[in-house]
Amino acid sequence: MTNLAIIASHPIQYYAPLFRCLAEDCNFNIKVFYLWDFGITNQIDPGFKQSLKWDIPLLDGYDFEFVPNISKNRGTHHIFGLQNPNLTQQVLTFQPDAILLTVSYNYASMYSFIWQMRNINIPMIFRGDSHRIQAKNNFKSQIKKLFIAKIFENFDACLYVGKANYEYFKYHSVLESKLFFAPHAIDNKRFSAMTNEISSQAKNWKQELGIPTKNMVILFAGKFEDKKRPLDLIQAFINAQLKSVSLLLVGAGNLDSEMRDLSKHHKQIYFAPFQNQSLMPRTYASSDVFVLPSYGSDETWGLAINEAMCMGCPVIVSSHVGCAADLVKHRKNGLIFEAGNVEDLTASLKEALADHYRLKRWGEESKIIVRDYCYDRIISGLKEALAAICKK
């Protein structure tokens, strides 16, 4: 049995079920070391601009401990938001056979931890999701490339979540022999267990929102912030002039007033507040197609796409969304449009909504594709990495 220490920034709804699966696996004895308590206490989310606490269990079914964070401005939005001077001591007290980092190295605590572990003979594995889809090639980027490559030299293996992330690691000189596939995944079982009850809840919710029963629904769910480009979607929907189609925008954020102002003269645009995790299956079940129009390098994957696909949604994503190359098969389960191009997004909306029956087929294909992006596959990749490390 492998004593596996896992370092995570904070309890995350996508990781907690994975940790439970690892705890149930007889090959592992795990302990998760959290660097921040966001998600289990009411705290302001910078993206949603409101107090947030997840309504599903995030700490059940596995061993964990919190490492005291002395930062005066705790969080993952800046390098000094995670400052945990006791991290190395607490991890070593667990006597791990291996250490898995699921948190970015780009925090004060992680730089300190990596430096302190450099002469300690415990293999370390890094799992990240960065990509270079919108990369710049200049002097500054070359210096950054060398710096990141030096960081990755400290790891015995790296787990990549998809094609774009694989290319990111390769660009930073990580050997192919050190790379193992461990895809981004969500709790597929919870989201795919769609029942008649959820369908009924979705129907009732749409009625409460005032969406006409006969209308098809385009859904955006997430933070109302610049990188998600909800304004692009609103403008594209207005331009498309689709008949018997509504646009539903679910979430909150600093673009809220601007989005409502752009939408105020258009009757078929609807807003709903932030929906906690227990309500997300109903949210996706309310739609006919899910859209993620993000722009820039910050949309490293887009796990909302996994969730939507589990619920049988066809998807439309921008070319900057990290999961596009893995999960979106153009004209098979959705469409990929040029990021930031409102005309291209408008055309995609028109194409997708032109054939209701084809859209249904795309949704069925989504469910098939996303099956392989599951926790079992992550654990398999982790085991492959550990086996390779043990051979050294």
Score class of each variant (00 low, 15 high):
residue 62 Y to G: 03
residue 62 Y to E: 02
residue 63 D to A: 12
residue 64 F to D: 01
residue 65 E to H: 05
residue 66 F to R: 08
residue 66 F to C: 07
residue 67 V to N: 03
residue 68 P to K: 11
residue 68 P to M: 05
residue 68 P to W: 12
residue 69 N to R: 02
residue 69 N to D: 06
residue 71 S to D: 03
residue 72 K to Q: 13
residue 73 N to C: 01
residue 73 N to H: 13
residue 74 R to I: 09
residue 75 G to Q: 08
residue 76 T to V: 10
residue 77 H to S: 15
residue 77 H to C: 01
residue 79 I to Q: 07
residue 82 L to N: 02
residue 83 Q to Y: 09
residue 83 Q to K: 11
residue 84 N to T: 13
residue 84 N to I: 00
residue 87 L to H: 11
residue 87 L to F: 11
residue 88 T to I: 11
residue 89 Q to V: 01
residue 89 Q to T: 05
residue 90 Q to C: 04
residue 91 V to K: 08
residue 93 T to C: 06
residue 94 F to V: 05
residue 94 F to C: 07
residue 97 D to W: 05
residue 97 D to V: 07
residue 97 D to K: 10
residue 98 A to L: 06
residue 99 I to S: 09
residue 99 I to Q: 03
residue 100 L to Q: 13
residue 101 L to K: 03
residue 101 L to G: 03
residue 104 S to W: 04
residue 104 S to N: 14
residue 104 S to R: 09
residue 107 Y to H: 13
residue 108 A to Q: 10
residue 108 A to W: 11
residue 108 A to M: 08
residue 113 F to I: 02
residue 115 W to T: 04
residue 116 Q to G: 01
residue 118 R to M: 03
residue 119 N to M: 05
residue 121 N to D: 15
residue 121 N to T: 08
residue 121 N to P: 02
residue 121 N to A: 14
residue 122 I to Q: 03
residue 123 P to T: 06
residue 123 P to C: 07
residue 124 M to L: 10
residue 124 M to Q: 12
residue 124 M to H: 04
residue 125 I to G: 05
residue 125 I to Y: 02
residue 126 F to V: 05
residue 129 D to E: 15
residue 129 D to W: 05
residue 129 D to L: 02
residue 130 S to D: 12
residue 131 H to K: 08
residue 131 H to F: 05
residue 132 R to F: 03
residue 132 R to Y: 07
residue 133 I to K: 15
residue 134 Q to D: 10
residue 134 Q to R: 14
residue 135 A to Y: 12
residue 138 N to E: 05
residue 138 N to P: 08
residue 140 K to V: 13
residue 141 S to L: 07
residue 141 S to A: 14
residue 142 Q to W: 12
residue 143 I to R: 11
residue 144 K to G: 02
residue 145 K to R: 15
residue 146 L to N: 14
residue 147 F to P: 03
residue 147 F to Q: 09
residue 150 K to S: 14
residue 151 I to R: 13
residue 151 I to L: 06
residue 151 I to K: 10
residue 152 F to V: 06
residue 153 E to Y: 10
residue 153 E to H: 14
residue 153 E to A: 05
residue 154 N to T: 00
residue 156 D to M: 08
residue 156 D to F: 02
residue 156 D to L: 01
residue 157 A to R: 14
residue 158 C to Q: 13
residue 161 V to D: 04
residue 161 V to C: 12
residue 161 V to L: 13
residue 163 K to R: 12
residue 165 N to E: 07
residue 166 Y to Q: 10
residue 166 Y to E: 08
residue 166 Y to T: 01
residue 167 E to F: 13
residue 168 Y to H: 13
residue 169 F to V: 01
residue 169 F to L: 03
residue 169 F to I: 00
residue 171 Y to K: 14
residue 172 H to E: 02
residue 173 S to C: 01
residue 176 E to L: 01
residue 177 S to Q: 13
residue 179 L to M: 15
residue 181 F to V: 09
residue 182 A to E: 00
residue 182 A to I: 00
residue 183 P to R: 00
residue 184 H to V: 04
residue 184 H to N: 14
residue 188 N to P: 07
residue 189 K to N: 11
residue 191 F to L: 12
residue 192 S to N: 12
residue 193 A to Q: 14
residue 193 A to K: 13
residue 194 M to H: 02
residue 194 M to V: 15
residue 197 E to Q: 15
residue 198 I to Q: 00
residue 198 I to T: 05
residue 200 S to H: 12
residue 200 S to D: 14
residue 200 S to R: 04
